[in-house]
Design a protein around this nucleic acid. Structure first.
Lengths: 200, 200
DNA sequence: CGGGGCTGATGACAAACGTCATGACCTGTC
DNA sequence: GACAGGTCATGACGTTTGTCATCAGCCCCG
C-alpha cells in the first residue's frame, strides 16, 4: 500500500485525482493540500510514502515544497505541471524530483507512474525529455534573469532599479544584454519570451 | 441518465473527472475533446445532453465552443475555468452559458451542479457572482482592449499599428487613454493589469 | 599570472514612448 | 438638431528607453 500526499491548488483536479487514485487497490491518499506551504505542513504530519505536487500553486511554489519535502522526509516526489518546458524539467530534476509529469498525461497513466517512482525508479515525460536534450539552454545570466523577472510586470526601469538596489543605467545594460541574447525588440518582449521558455 | 460531453486540454483533469462523474449512477460521459474545435465536432456527432467545457483550451477558446454548441445543439453548457474573474463570468453569461464553475470548486460538487443545470436551472459560483456585483466594470473601449491585447506580448508600437491597420500615433493615443484609465505607468503594465482582470 | 566572464557603474546619443492639443468623421441619444 | 462619445489621424513636446563605449572590481580556469 502506497500512502500518498496530493497537493494542487485546483480542488477540482485534486479531488478527482484523489478519487481516481483511491480506486487503485495499492494506493491511498492520506493527505491533501492546496498550496506549497500547506503541502510541507501536511507531509510532516501524515508522513506519506510519496508526494504528488503541482508545480504552480500560489502562494509558495511547488518546487520549493518539493525540495523541503525531499530534505525533511526523504520521500520521492512526483511533480505535475501545466507549464511543462525543458527548463522547468531541469530545475525540477536539480531539486531532486523523481517524477515529472505534464498535465496532458492521460489520467490512467498516473497510477503506473506513481508505482514506478515508488519502486525507486524515475519517470520523466518522454516528450519533454526529448525537448530538453535538443532545445537551447538558457543563455541568460542570473542577474539578467532576476531583472527580467521583475520587468515582466511592466514596471518602468527606475522601479526595477529600486527593487534590486542597482543604478538605473546598470539595469538598462542588463536588459539590453538580455534583449540582444533573445533577439527581442523590447525588454517586455524579452521577458515574455523568457517566461514562455520557463526560464523565469 | 444525463449524457455528458467533457472537454479540457489537460488529459489528467479530463480523465480523472470522467472517471469521477462516471461513478455517478445518473451520469455518463459519452464524448471527450481536448480543444474547442474538437469539442464542437464531437458534440455534433454524439449529441450529448449537456457539455462541460474548460474555458482555456488552445487552439480555439472554450467560450467560442460554448456559443457554437449552444446554437447548433441547443443544449446547456457548463464552463469550468482556472481564471475565474468577474469579467470572464460576464462574457460567459452573455454567451448563454448555464453554469460557471471555477477549478477551485470541490470535485464532489460538480455532479450536483451538472444535475442543477440539466434540470433547467443555472449555477454560478457564488464567490465570483458576489465579486461581479461589487467590482468595477471594465472602463476600456473595444478598440483599447483590442490594442492592449496585442501590446501584451511586448511588441513595439509600430508592430501593433501594422497588426490593426492603424497609424502608430493613433495606437499611442489609445494606449495612452487605456493607461490613464487603469492608472498604469506603461502600456505593458496596463496590459498586464487588464489581463489579470480578465478583460483581455 | 593573465585572459575571460559576470557584476556594477557612468555618460552620450538616437530612437521609441507617453502626453497633450487639435481636428475630422460617424453614431447614437436627449 | 445639438451633444456626447468613440474612432482615426497629425504634430509638437519632453521623457524614457535601448545602444554603445568605457571603466573598475571580482572570481575562476587554464
Amino acid at each position: 500500500m502506497i500512502r500518498l500526499l496530493l497537493a494542487d491548488d485546483e480542488d477540482l483536479l485534486r479531488g478527482a485525482l484523489g478519487t481516481l487514485l483511491g480506486l487503485e487497490p495499492d494506493l491511498r491518499v492520506v493527505g491533501e493540500a492546496a498550496d506549497g506551504l500547506a503541502a510541507v505542513r501536511v507531509a510532516l504530519r501524515v508522513r506519506p510514502d510519496l508526494a504528488v505536487l503541482d508545480l504552480e500553486m500560489p502562494p509558495g511554489d511547488g518546487l520549493q515544497a518539493a525540495t523541503d519535502i525531499r530534505i525533511r522526509l526523504g520521500i520521492p516526489v512526483v511533480l505535475v505541471t501545466r507549464h511543462a518546458r525543458p527548463a522547468v524539467l531541469r530545475r525540477a530534476l536539480a531539486a531532486g524530483v523523481r517524477g515529472f509529469v505534464p498535465k496532458t498525461t492521460p489520467a490512467t497513466r498516473l497510477a503506473e507512474i506513481i508505482r514506478t517512482v515508488h519502486a525507486g525508479r524515475r519517470y520523466v515525460d518522454p516528450e519533454i525529455a526529448a525537448s530538453a536534450l535538443t532545445e537551447d539552454d538558457c543563455p541568460l545570466t542570473a542577474r539578467e534573469l532576476e531583472i527580467l523577472r521583475i520587468a515582466r510586470s511592466g514596471v518602468p526601469i527606475t522601479e526595477i532599479a529600486a527593487a534590486v538596489h542597482l543604478a538605473p543605467g546598470t539595469v538598462r545594460n542588463y536588459l539590453s544584454a538580455a534583449m540582444a541574447k533573445l533577439g527581442a525588440a523590447t525588454r517586455h518582449a524579452a521577458a515574455h519570451h523568457a517566461w514562455e521558455q520557463g526560464w523565469i
